[in-house]
Design a protein around this nucleic acid. Structure first.
Lengths: 320, 320
DNA sequence: TGCGCTTATATTCTCATTGAGTATAATCGG
DNA sequence: CCGATTATACTCAATGAGAATATAAGCGCA
């Protein structure tokens, strides 16, 4: 049966089995002082990445090897993000197709031995419109909204104009709509489509119309994919703990989630939820850091990882 | 900046940029008479698939081309599933690595013009333990449980034995644990690890210990990935409607979701939820099919797709 | 016609979860 | 010992989920 099927799948006209190069790209996330950071190579706004080679046993091991070689940082938790294969990806080289398999990795900065050529960058440097912890950033209504409306009104027919306005309103929470932090990727893609980010106007002499650092090739899009994935995942799986030190206070945990989500959380409800699901257990020690009453230290209960898909561990993200 | 980064990413020792072949594989799902079906090629237990070729503009278009050529079935909604690159995937051919990019597609059987070489197979033929609509299938406690316990007890040290037992109990809902339909992939991987499915014992002369048709290469694993993705996705995004005819009754809709989830739904709660979220609107007609009071016909409100990520559209799947 | 069968639709009643606000406890620096 | 600061505990209303029951509208057939 195996053989018959193989024949069927390969002996077909038009099936020139062209070869491609595979690029492995990593979005490595860690927290630094309540800022969500991504690992880049030096100051180049480039994510760690490299070609898949024969010596790599698997995609994951290839990725780990590249990240470790380029940044000196060993990886723990990783998860596949997406496989991109835009033909116009690397610009002009059309003779050889390159597909890019991206991964999300969660670690802690301390795990890095030497700073070496690596560099931690707050991801809000690349997406300043994504941080709503201190309220909606002024640029959303001052810059993005008018530019997006301008873009929408530039459409040929009225249906498209309405459609564009609606998409922008949903993605960015215009017109009394709620802000949805999970839509980070859609927002970036919308700005790209509206040619408001630098990547969409490569080759142009005009300055990028919207503030926010750009990245090499499609790396900012990959980063946006990672952010969106992480933001939605922390709501139903206890992955935040990959970013936490062995012992932490509940407030530290809350600040971490807030940093990732880019919005504030209701304190008591957050604590109630964490305790309800028995995600943590007390270490017995207390933290005496800042002024005020000392906080109990907790550690993650690794057992919960084996207790199934932690149903309904929804994090109570506060509303507007 | 683009150029500098490109140099950094490619001029590195050990970076032999080996080329690979890319295989595109589709899990095409449709409903037939309240059975969730997957599109296969003839009777070969093979998913539609083919190599990515230069003439394909993108991964998606390549996939569409292959599926249409092999089955005559045009695709509507598709979504990327996962990229596999097991070195031992295709068996023995180690000189050329093959990675497999898989997609999930949702359609309706009627869309196919001619039956041609395609064939719709109930996915429960491949995963008989996944259908809990008529209660937990006997094979779960009669076959799977003893075999998995046997496998667990075959481990060297006690810790691994406990760990295996726990994993099995979580995945299959042993020991009073609830059944979680979303874990379809974990269940298959567990059975594979325990060498209880045919794919895990290729080359052996022994018969497969667990009932359920196998598929070519790793296609059953890809199918399991698709099932798991679809089962979890119907809970927060209105993708079911891709599988529905233009007009349908609420009961038909419920039966469809039940078929996908492999478990029953509480009727009134289901209707309440659908109406609450305004996912559908009445067509004005009624269905006079079976005996009993005629049911109102509804159509999907496509507007909701543009109303953001349909927050909390959780489907009320009934408990034990 | 009307009775029973079947399916559709509406209503009600808990109980758990969620969002939000308020109160009390413990430490520190003066 | 006071007030600033942070931690932890408790309360309350609104909402949503699960489950059960009631009523409506067709059909077939005596």
């Amino acid at each position: 049966m195996d053989d018959r099927a193989k024949r069927i799948r390969t002996n077909r006209p038009g099936g020139k089995a062209d070869t491609v190069k595979v690029d492995l790209t990593a979005v490595v996330v860690a927290l630094s002082d309540n800022e969500p950071c991504v690992l880049t190579i030096g100051q180049t706004d480039t994510l760690p990445s490299g070609p898949l080679a024969l010596e790599h046993r698997s995609l994951q091991s290839g990725l780990r090897a590249w990240v470790e070689e380029q940044t000196g940082h060993p990886l723990g938790y990783i998860e596949q993000l997406y496989t991109f294969a835009d033909r116009d990806r690397a610009g002009t080289e059309l003779e050889q197709r390159v597909i890019s398999i991206s991964y999300l990795a969660l670690t802690r900065k301390e795990h890095a031995a030497a700073p070496s050529r690596s560099c931690w960058q707050s991801w809000y440097d690349y997406f300043p419109w994504e941080d709503h912890r201190a309220g909606t950033p002024p640029m959303v209504s001052d810059v993005l909204r008018p530019r997006l409306i301008e873009w929408a009104d530039g459409a040929d027919d009225g249906a498209t104009r309405l459609e564009r306005r609606r998409r922008a309103a949903i993605a960015f929470g215009f017109d009394e709509r709620p802000w949805n932090e999970d839509l980070a990727l859609k927002r970036y893609e919308l700005l790209y489509e509206a040619a408001l980010v630098e990547e969409a106007m490569r080759g142009s002499v005009l300055p990028p119309p919207v503030r926010g650092k750009s990245m090499v090739a499609d790396h900012r899009r990959i980063l946006a994919t990672g952010i969106a994935r992480l933001r939605s995942k922390i709501k139903y799986r206890p992955v935040v703990f990959e970013l936490m030190p062995p012992a932490f206070t509940l407030l530290q945990l809350q600040r971490t989630v807030e940093a990732l989500a880019g919005r504030l959380i209701h304190k008591s409800n957050f604590r109630r939820l964490i305790e309800q699901h028995e995600l943590v257990e007390e270490t017995g020690d207390t933290a005496t850091e800042t002024g005020g009453r000392p906080a109990k230290l907790y550690r993650f209960r690794h057992a919960v990882l084996e207790e199934g898909e932690v149903a309904g561990a929804k994090l109570p993200l506060a509303r507007g």
